[in-house]
Design a protein around this nucleic acid. Structure first.
Lengths: 155, 155
DNA sequence: CACAGTATTCACAAATTCGTGAAACGGGCG
DNA sequence: CGCCCGTTTCACGAATTTGTGAATACTGTG
């Protein structure tokens, strides 16, 4: 690999995402793409910038494409695919959690049901469930609000 | 370990949290506590219910206490400490992310600065930064709203 | 002050994750 | 149609993570 300008901040950010539970390589690829030129990067460029093998990039982009965080854009006349952030990838990362919250809420209710004998605990379990459902409902709305604000602010 | 009623849903929920990036053992302990009787569980009870060693429980609760997700409550006249969910542990889990979002936003700005030559990309990086700052600010407020709603609804 | 029952620490072993190199695959240009 | 270049797949090895068992430290009691 050769030296590249402006990798520091990207690696730093990737490390944060990794600490937050995201797999390391997808995080690195994604953050590299945040700092990409307008056309995005090819797989080879990513491998070079990150100093990893083509195989590692392949695995990471497969994951990211599946998650709808990035997209593969094929340009006619160029055999090399380029990768690019999906427009609202970040918003997607947030809204993607909504179903998880809903599922967790359901599990909390199950726990409450299974322990119907300890009233106070049951109440608390149901409160948690309620909270999670609230999140599942409000997070997407929060995203919408942001888009609205941004349009108003004019960025 | 002996058989225990009502572990299924808890384990299921723990698995979800684990899939979302939380370490497995802390997740299992935490979900076990959601279904705990009002006084919580002792470390020994947790070890028994989860079928793991005392050492594993010790490590998990140390982490959870540090994160302010659970608390150790010592009852006079009983040498065994009991563990219990912190009242707004879940709300805490959410608000705890706010600083992370803010940091990430700062990194996005750095990335933008380092790539000042590719205008469109820079704009996108700054947009992401803006989104993250928005989240950092609004998430805590969302929690407050929930508490307010809940008080109004009366549960 | 010694004892008993708990909790914590530590080194190790098992298991999982992660990235690499090499081989197979695919698709467009000569 | 066959070559060429880029991508993907796969088995392996390294490294990190995760939980255990045994020893150590604590704390309240008799």
């Amino acid at each position: 690999m050769t030296e590249h300008p402006g990798v520091e901040a990207a690696e730093q950010a990737a490390a944060m995402l990794a600490a937050a539970g995201m797999a390391r390589m997808p995080a690195r690829v994604m953050m590299a793409l945040v700092g990409s030129p307008d056309e995005g990067y090819t797989a080879a460029e990513l491998a070079d910038r990150l100093g990893v093998s083509a195989a590692a990039v392949s695995g990471a982009v497969r994951y990211l494409v599946t998650m709808r965080f990035i997209q593969r854009v094929s340009r006619p006349g160029d055999r090399r695919d380029r990768y690019d952030l999906v427009d609202d990838a970040w918003a997607g990362m947030i809204t993607a959690n909504a179903p998880l919250y809903a599922s967790l809420a359901a599990q909390m209710e199950s726990i409450a049901d299974e322990n119907a004998d300890a009233p106070i605990s049951v109440a608390r379990a149901r409160e948690v469930a309620d909270f999670l459902r609230y999140l599942a409902e409000r997070m997407p709305r929060l995203i919408d609000d942001w888009r609205a604000d941004r349009r108003g602010d004019d960025g």
